[in-house]
Nucleic acid binder design. Structure first.
Lengths: 203, 203
DNA sequence: AATTCTATCTTGACGGTGTCAATATTGCAG
DNA sequence: CTGCAATATTGACACCGTCAAGATAGAATT
């Protein structure tokens, strides 16, 4: 077992695959990721990855799941510095958009049709997403109590609609409908105004 | 030239292709559409479609463009019956969601990454989408004047953000993140409340 | 230390994809 | 009737995901 790359067994191929895949989709998009190119990049034969992931779908699920962990960590860090509730919410929105656009391909796997419609989300991925969503809804309840979000419906519905708004804004950019980054910042600002002013209307 | 299908020249292959393609993506999603299957369905050889569409991308662009026309027609019909402005807006929202979910695959081509990011939108498609968007912005201006949408920003920004909200809501369902139709109608209702109550907050 | 077992990796193969090049057929204009 | 342009065809190529069968290496057991 030398330190040279000519060894038969790779070491931690699972991890290497995930990282190489992340790099590829960052550069070439999910469409540019093929199992064969991936294997090649890691320096291994075509079918080696199949001993670590059942199929391509499973690999993409793993990437998405990583994304959920990553995102959750980021948001947890945000909440730690205890700013006023409303400011925190605004920071959350910015952070959410930041993550979506910075890791657009991962975001697409997390919330896009590739896995949820065209593919088959793994049980583990479903669990991750459910947990993330649950945390979000709980926070929405808090935000409602602090008068940042409206009270005219349950935390679930308010959480769903405000999330939908954010998600839609993110998608317009990461799907290539909008490209201009200048528009982006102004649209985020206006979206925050929209979401935050809702409480004024609730009874 | 008999009426039997054994003729060498097909007649109006362009149209047949578009209709067969529409049928396929409706049943099997965009992922289920291949040029070969399409040709086969129409009863023509693999490469025949290439005399009518430069490549698969071009065919998808044509489908998307049809979608824009279809959608525009639907919305024009809606406006003709001159209901009160606010009611009209609510009907618009419902109609928009209806269209998105009823023709989810076409909607995806119109506003999704398949063409706008992964693919290459044709000039003709760009034009169609631009026109649709322009019409929307003009109507937003009207809605602002009638106090249905807020006045705290330009028609462009308000149009962008409200559209983003609608788009996001649609995507959550047509991408398979949400599936329950019951949730859907309640979420639409709440989203309308969100959008329509914004004016109360604007100066 | 020798042997077995198991995890890992390999090559070979199959059916699918988009699309180019070269060829054949047809309908129409001259 | 002839020739031309539009349309359709077969053949080929390079990719793709993934299954099956065999090779290799490291760990466990004797």
């Amino acid at each position: 077992m030398s330190t040279l790359k000519l060894q038969y067994h790779h070491g931690d191929l699972t991890k290497s695959l995930l990282e190489a895949a992340t790099a590829i989709i960052k550069e070439q998009g999910v469409e540019g990721l093929s199992m064969r190119k991936l294997a090649d990049k890691v320096g291994v034969s075509r079918t080696a990855p199949y001993h670590h992931f059942k199929d391509k779908n499973a690999l993409l699920c793993a990437l998405a799941e990583r994304g959920f962990n990553q995102q959750e960590k980021m948001l947890a860090a945000l909440k730690k510095q205890d700013h006023p509730t409303e400011q925190l919410f605004k920071e959350y929105v910015c952070a959410y958009m930041d993550y979506a656009l910075e890791h657009s391909e991962i975001y697409d796997l997390m919330y896009g049709r590739t896995l949820w419609k065209a593919g088959t989300p793994s049980d583990s991925l479903k669990k991750s997403s459910k947990q993330t969503f649950k945390a979000w809804i709980e926070w929405v309840e808090e935000l409602q109590e602090h008068g940042v979000l409206p009270n005219n419906n349950t935390p679930l519905r308010i959480g769903q609609t405000t999330w939908a708004s954010l998600h839609g804004l993110a998608r317009l950019f990461l799907d290539g409908i909008y490209l201009d980054q200048t528009d982006l910042s102004e649209m985020i600002e206006q979206m925050i105004k929209n979401l935050c002013s809702l409480r004024l209307a609730s009874t």
